[in-house]
Nucleic acid binder design. Sequence first.
DNA 1: GAAGGAGGTTAGCAGCCGTTCACTTTGTCG
DNA 2: CGACAAAGTGAACGGCTGCTAACCTCCTTC
Lengths: 190, 190
Amino acid sequence: MVEKPSRRDQILNAAAELFARHGFHGVGIDDIGAAVGISGPALYRHFRSKDAMLGEMLTSISERLLDGGQSRVDAASDAEEALRELVGWHVDFALDDPALITVQMRNLANLTDPDRRRVRALQRRYVEVWVETIRRTVPGFDEPTARAAAHAVFGLINSTPHSAHLDRDQMAALLSRMALASLTPAVVAS
Amino acid sequence: MVEKPSRRDQILNAAAELFARHGFHGVGIDDIGAAVGISGPALYRHFRSKDAMLGEMLTSISERLLDGGQSRVDAASDAEEALRELVGWHVDFALDDPALITVQMRNLANLTDPDRRRVRALQRRYVEVWVETIRRTVPGFDEPTARAAAHAVFGLINSTPHSAHLDRDQMAALLSRMALASLTPAVVAS
DNA sequence: GAAGGAGGTTAGCAGCCGTTCACTTTGTCG
DNA sequence: CGACAAAGTGAACGGCTGCTAACCTCCTTC
């Protein structure tokens, strides 16, 4: 017996899909309602506002990313394995929830100020996990360079919603190999 | 004597900056006007509509990317050099015009249907230039894989507006090395 | 030095869209 | 069964925003 998702989650999923495709301001309240079979204002029984939907969506994504990444790193026995796990984790996330990844990349600017602060704080911590792991495997990187490299790898992996013409496993393998190759000690040479 | 940019170009540049930061729908006509020192409706002396601004912006970006990429490839004497040139070209573009790159990545969905068709056609041709070059240097890639790899490299390079804490030359070097490393024959092994 | 076009201004309209309101339906529980 | 809360509905409001209209001011040009 499958446990059906709560109405809140149905709405959040539908909204994520729409936000990813048309952008936050390109989607109306009525569109979101229609996507879950109810109409317009009924959403206000579940969320305080449209902004609140985006806020909850982005904070939950950021938390999931951080928690998953942190625990994978903690479970790894050496630095190389930690990096492989981190890459695999992010690749899986991007492939399984392309809409969420897209929204997280594009719609930070549409958040309320307090929400944006919260999300950015979580994102920063996630980046730090990557920075530390990268620096442990590629000792030549100084901190700012490692941070830039982390952002670049995010861009590489997060690009998957825009191509998607490979099947999931091939895509996962390709992205993982590309990501790891771009983080080898060879690239650090001046 | 510096030749000053035409008013149209001033407007386009200001609009690109604003669209990149706040998204197409997040920017008002008055905001764009204020950014160039005139106010609101005066823009309609230069553009038919707000949509037309975005349309012209994105088509011109796509044309520049395609032309620059194609001519670099044509001028190269072998496949490896062609790929290096292509990477360098895209990196330079992304570093010199971060706002344009951001708008092109995020605001395709806000285009008019005919504009979107035009832009996508140009983008497809640009991707094909990459795909051919990649396949010539990394023979193991089949076409769909090479296409996915090209998109991934775009994501990697286009991520630069979101990090930006390195100086330009270091950033260019880092991104170029990472991009080339992710496209080496080693990654093709199953 | 009139004529006229290019580029600017402010006021205002029309439509969209997030949100609220008053009301109904549905399901649960004493 | 009666009651009450949860969830949904259509109507309406209010503010924002893209765009037009009407008018003004230069600058060029014959």
